[in-house]
């Protein structure tokens, strides 16, 4: 079947089968390889994107379900001039990533959180990241980065 999506503001289309996952379509049909696949049980969140403004795991959604939808991926998170967006910049400033594999999902999850809750507490951030696994950072600097991206004082974070 033919699928059309708006991805990061641009209309894109391609061929898909019933079983084609949104993540597969993004990576293989559209060449947007920033969305990563880290598990097959919908746990790790490396594949997190936004569909119609809502955070979803693109490996646990058929692309047919997203036909006609507005999809945002990590490739669309930078500013229009190419500079890092606020969340991306905070991740770099606070060393919120190491190997980079979980990072696209973390940034997309963080963006979704901050949209609903512009000044989340540390506990709220950790709760929101329940479905995003990072093996490198111990989450410390990810939490810091999200605090900073929300304009909150990072030195106020416990243990700093």
């Amino acid at each position: 079947m033919k699928i059309s999506l708006t991805v990061n503001g641009k209309t894109m289309s391609g061929e898909a089968e019933g079983r084609t996952l949104l993540s597969t379509f993004l990576r293989e049909e559209l060449g947007l390889t920033g969305t990563h696949i880290g598990c097959d049980t919908s746990q790790c969140g490396a594949c997190t994107v936004h569909v119609n403004g809502k955070q979803v795991k693109s490996c646990t959604m058929f692309v047919a379900e997203a036909d006609g939808a507005d999809v945002s991926t990590i490739e669309g998170m930078a500013n229009t001039d190419g500079s890092l967006g606020v969340i991306q910049q905070a991740f770099q400033d606070h060393h919120g990533l190491q190997c980079g594999f979980c990072t696209p999902g973390m940034v997309m999850a963080a963006a979704s959180l901050l949209e609903k809750n512009p000044k989340p507490s540390e506990a709220e951030i950790r709760h929101h990241l329940e479905g995003n696994i990072c093996r490198c950072t111990g989450y410390h600097n990810i939490v810091k980065a999200i605090m900073a991206a929300s304009g909150q004082e990072v030195p106020a974070v416990a243990a700093e």
Binding site: S42, G45, T48, K54, Q55, V56, K57, T60, M61, A109, S112, L113, H128, E130, G131, N132
Partner: peptide, 9 residues
């Protein structure tokens, strides 16, 4: 239930 992404679907 689950996590934010799971709850959206």
């Amino acid at each position: 239930i689950g996590d934010p992404a799971v709850r959206n679907r």
